[in-house]
């Protein structure tokens, strides 16, 4: 029998975090997720993990505007 993925998400949140759905709007907040998951799924395979150590702060410095 198929289960509602939102029910599954609620169970997983309670299981992992001990947080209960606070109100009806909380359930509504999960409504965004199918679209977000679809967006993330569309990105699969598009970028590889970089194996070398990296910091975002280093990327900021590397992309600084060069002096004219």
């Amino acid at each position: 029998m198929a289960t509602d993925p939102m029910d599954e998400a609620e169970r997983a949140i309670r299981f992992w975090s001990g947080v209960a759905c606070p109100n009806a709007a909380g359930r509504r907040a999960l409504d965004d997720f199918p679209a977000l998951i679809a967006e993330l799924a569309a990105l699969r395979g598009g970028m590889a993990f970089e194996e070398e150590p990296a910091l975002f702060e280093a990327a900021l410095r590397a992309e600084k505007e060069q002096e004219a």
Binding site: A29, L30, A59
Partner: peptide
């Protein structure tokens, strides 16, 4: 109501996707 709802959604996001989002921040910049 709106804030507890918004926070609640954050607990549903898997850790590996959070790490993926952070690790791609530099390359996407």
């Amino acid at each position: 109501t709106h804030l507890s709802a918004r926070l609640y959604g954050g607990y549903a996001i898997p850790g590996h996707l959070y790490v993926e989002a952070l690790s791609r921040r530099g390359p996407l910049l």
